[in-house]
Design a protein around this nucleic acid. Structure first.
Lengths: 149, 149
DNA sequence: TAAGATTGAGCAATCAATCTTC
DNA sequence: GAAGATTGATTGCTCAATCTTA
């Protein structure tokens, strides 16, 4: 038998997770829009700033994104002069994404905003609570993996 | 002084929350796409099935969405013959969104899928853990409210 | 003036298909 | 055939502006 009703606590958890994502996304993008780089693009910048020039497929697999998502992010960053696509000398299929000087600066500025934002939000939890949260989310994410995602 | 580095535990929490949202969204949409209604649209259907005919602005404020989001969802649902927009007899500015018979059926089918999905995912947690999770997310969401979201 | 609905422009994500090169 | 990158089509979300009616 398929259950026909939903434990309200499960529903609350599910809604609260969604709610947190949507609202934090809204807030961080409002804060970052003044800086000229969205959070999603800033994450790509920061990754490349840390790891050095990467291929598009490396960025996609690092974040678990579809290839399309990365191409689009790089397009935007390139349009804004923050990255360049360079041919990969070792593989003519591939391109290396490199930061421009403006991109380096943007990565630093966005990184500071990101840190400030995360500190702001998670100041609502104690270190212990935060650890608990990470543990619970770990279980949920592992379950999603089992379910095929 | 602005802090220049980020507690790895905070970063882990932040990433895990985002990860959960993206992956669960992906999974549930894959499951629901077979049924012909996306999760986001199904939520609108289910709300109206439960509450009866509503105005667009009511749907928006219930979910905390921007008006545009709701108009777009209703457009899709109407295109698929699942809802109709009817003039509100009491207010010529407003329209009442009503379910068609197909919409009623879709709401029921999607509701069953949703329950199955949430039960599947949260079976990874005990009742106690789930309660803890809801509490922690409640604190985080309250903090987001203080921060302006 | 404000409220209800819509529209325009843009971002971030998906899937599926394509093209080139390995 | 498989891997790297791109493109097309779609969804869901944001903000800001507009139009009609209250």
């Amino acid at each position: 038998m398929v259950p026909h009703n939903l434990d309200p606590e499960l529903e609350a958890a599910s809604e609260a997770l969604r709610d947190f994502y949507l609202r934090s996304h809204r807030l961080v993008d409002r804060r970052m829009s003044g800086e000229g780089v969205s959070f999603a693009r800033a994450k790509v910048l920061m990754l490349i700033a840390r790891e050095g020039a990467m291929r598009s497929t490396d960025v996609a697999s690092f974040f678990g994104y579809a290839p399309r998502t990365v191409t689009e992010a790089i397009d935007g960053l390139e349009r804004d002069g923050l990255v360049r696509r360079e041919p990969d000398p070792a593989d003519r299929r591939a391109k290396r994404i490199v930061l421009t000087p403006a991109g380096e600066a943007a990565a630093i500025a966005a990184g500071a905003l990101r840190i400030a934002f995360i500190n702001d939000v998670f100041s609502a939890l104690s270190a212990e609570e935060c650890e608990t949260l990470v543990g619970l989310l770990g279980k949920l994410n592992a379950r999603l993996g089992e379910l095929g995602g």
